[in-house]
């Protein structure tokens, strides 16, 4: 890929590439490390900060809140569906985010867990599915923040949402490297990595890079079989179980 230098007046530009644009999930998959290299072209060489935001495929998420019933038993409240919470969300930056930019700039970019946009509908909306109502919380509702924090905490505990204020390291003048760890429970699908260059608290240049996490080999074959021919798959697994039980019994009888 040939690099075309930006026109002198264009101001600072960030450029970046992933060392690997596809993560293969096979039977030995135990998580992966995404490595990203990038460069800053800035004729005036002003102090720069880099923020890398990696988002995984969006997944609707149903959560409930435990509430005390009758003063003794903890039961689940009515479930709430959050549409479009990313399945993975990681921010890596060269410094803590609040030192790089102000609230507004971070909020507009959705940089950092605090500023992550979870696409709850703008207005209160109720869906009925199989006769059971799932309440979808409004972005404007008073308890929205509590629920949103709940979503984030659950994802953080699963290692799927994180922020690393030292995740971007400058390896040379204008050259940086970022590492993002994918846990083994990371969802498969299309990921995006957004690389943002900050100067004086303002985003001055952005780059977007794509990444796929996909099952390969036996993992993929089994997954596809389970979804495309579910009854055949089920029959096969039952047959394996019965045959194994019979085989063990036969082997032990001979001994």
């Amino acid at each position: 890929m040939a690099f075309i230098p930006p026109p002198p007046e264009a101001g600072p530009v960030v450029s970046a590439a992933l060392t690997d644009t596809s993560v293969k999930v096979n039977s030995s998959f135990r998580g992966a490390r995404i490595v990203l290299y990038g460069a800053i072209y800035d004729p005036r060489a002003r102090p720069s900060d880099v923020v890398v935001i990696v988002r995984g495929p969006e997944q609707p998420l149903r959560i409930a809140r435990k509430t005390k019933a009758a003063g003794v038993v903890w039961v689940n409240s009515r479930p709430v569906v959050f549409q479009g919470a990313p399945g993975f969300f990681m921010t890596a930056s060269s410094r803590p985010l609040d030192q790089i930019a102000g609230f507004g700039a971070l909020r507009r970019l959705g940089a950092g867990i605090d500023h992550l946009a979870i696409n709850a509908p703008e207005e209160q909306q109720e869906e009925t599915r199989y006769g059971i109502r799932d309440m979808v919380v409004s972005r404007l509702g008073t308890d929205y923040l509590d629920w949103r924090r709940g979503v984030v905490r659950l994802k953080q505990n699963a290692g799927l949402y994180a922020a690393d204020p030292q995740g971007v390291k400058f390896v040379d003048q204008g050259l940086f490297r970022a590492e993002i760890d994918l846990p083994s429970g990371a969802p498969t699908g299309a990921y995006t990595a957004e690389i943002v260059l900050f100067q004086d608290g303002q985003p001055v240049s952005r780059r977007m890079r794509g990444l796929t996490v996909e099952k390969v080999g036996l993992e993929r074959e089994l997954y596809l079989l389970a979804h495309r021919r579910p009854w055949l798959y089920g029959l096969a697994s039952v047959m394996i179980a019965l045959a194994a039980g019979w085989a063990a019994s036969a082997v032990f009888r001979r001994n």
Partner: peptide, 28 residues
Amino acid sequence: SLLQAGRNQTVDIVLATLLLIGGVIGAQ
């Protein structure tokens, strides 16, 4: 098991096989 695989696609054949290798011997 068949119903779960057919309706919900929730049977993990690798998980089940690992468990049953030990299971059939232990049961003996």
